[in-house]
Design a protein around this nucleic acid. Structure first.
Length: 378
DNA sequence: AAGTCGGGGCA
DNA sequence: TGCCCAGACTT
């Protein structure tokens, strides 16, 4: 294995044995810092609770880890609370229809996660309601990849798994000043983490690495002077921790355009339809739209509407996805036609609870301000 | 190995 | 505006 790094002489010591038997001073320092400075999170069992014998609930660990995939802690909190309130355990989640899960997930993004979450719940419930307690077993389940399998194994089942997420990649790439682009360095980073994982408290070690990355070893302006690993860190010496991790330059984001049509009935209902289960916004609900093409020619018109009507321009909205930007011209019409095949009328007070992704809420808000928001009770 | 897949917070 | 976030899955 070629490690393209500028390593620093490693501190030696016998305390804190790692799973591989090597020195674990980094783990010891990190765990001590975690005991004093860990974040208090809704899905987390704090060190003092663990010491009292309280065990993590694998269901809650799994649910939080799936929600946290490429999603910030702050964005997840309210969704996590709503989910465990509505579905306290795996059997409750398995007993609910997928459509209800999609509605509860609306706004959180990456909607294949919600579909896989439900599929995973069904599978686990059918097999007795208990999650596998090994990385390999967890990895077989839908929506659980290398990271999530390791995280659940470490946090819920106390196994010395190498948990590598974006935080860990950043921390390790700075610890060892890894100049190799991240896409090529992942294998080496995993090896480093495997050597650091302690035999005891592997779950706290994993969470400590992530807390460190989130609060101290941040992407920009890291607070190196407060870091418990500053004595171990290669990047801090040259004072350029912020240049790590090294990433390859990314391509430009194309622009796509289209039109969206908000049909409003006399009683305030609007016409919706459900997208296919796969692909962009899979399984979510939308208003009728034209295709989203890459062409930047003349604007779209009412001629592309799903059915004839007195379509009037109702503004334009923009939305940025991961790999393209979208501009939609919004048209609005009052109509009392029967819902065309594949469409349905959604009553005004049901619209806020529909499985509408954010881009579609923008479209509806452009045509009917306040329509997607829960009405206040006075 | 590269592309697809949301949305929001931050400098 | 660009970058990044407790990544998974497909091709």
């Amino acid at each position: 294995m070629a490690l393209h790094v500028q390593t620093r002489k490693t501190a030696s010591g016998d305390s804190g044995k790692t799973a591989s038997g090597e020195s674990g001073e980094i783990a010891s320092r990190l765990l001590a810092w975690y005991d004093a400075h860990h974040r208090d999170l809704p899905w987390r069992i704090a060190p003092r609770e663990l010491a009292r014998g309280i065990r993590p609930d694998p269901y809650r660990v799994w649910l939080s880890e799936v929600m946290l995939q490429q999603t910030t802690v702050e964005a997840v909190k309210s969704y996590f609370r709503a989910f465990v309130e509505k579905w306290p355990d795996i059997d409750a989640l398995a007993a609910s229809p997928t459509e209800d899960v999609m509605k509860a997930w609306a706004g959180l993004g990456y909607y294949s996660r919600a579909r896989n979450l439900k599929a995973c719940a069904d599978l686990v419930a059918r097999q007795g309601g208990r999650f596998p307690d090994t990385q390999a077993g967890l990895r077989e389940l839908p929506g659980i990849g290398a990271y999530t399998a390791a995280a659940i194994a470490a946090i819920a089942f106390d196994q010395p798994a190498a948990v590598v997420d974006g935080n860990v990649e950043r921390v390790v790439s700075r610890l060892f000043s890894i100049v190799t682009p991240l896409s090529e360095a992942k294998s080496d980073i995993r090896t480093y983490v495997e050597r650091m994982v302690p035999a005891t408290r592997p779950g706290d070690f994993a969470q400590a690495m992530m807390d460190l990355g989130a609060t101290i070893c941040t992407p920009r302006q890291p607070r190196c002077m407060l870091c418990p690993l500053r004595e171990d860190c290669s990047a801090i010496i040259s004072g350029d921790a912020e240049r790590f991790p090294v990433r390859l330059p990314k391509g430009e984001k194309p622009l796509r355009r289209g039109a969206a049509f908000v049909a409003v009935r006399g009683d305030g209902a609007i016409l919706l339809r459900k997208r296919g289960d796969k692909g962009l916004l899979g399984g979510m609900t939308e208003v009728p739209t034209t295709g989203w093409t890459a062409r930047i020619d003349g604007g779209t018109t009412a001629a592309a509407a799903p059915f004839p009507g007195n379509w009037r321009p109702a503004g334009k909205i923009g939305h940025v996805f991961t790999h393209f930007a979208l501009e939609l011209d919004v048209f609005k019409a009052m109509t009392d036609v029967a819902a065309p095949a594949g469409h349905f009328w959604s009553l005004a007070d049901e619209i806020p609870g529909e499985a509408l992704p954010t881009v579609m809420k923008k479209v509806i808000e452009a045509a009917i301000p306040g329509a997607t928001k829960n009405q206040r009770v006075h």
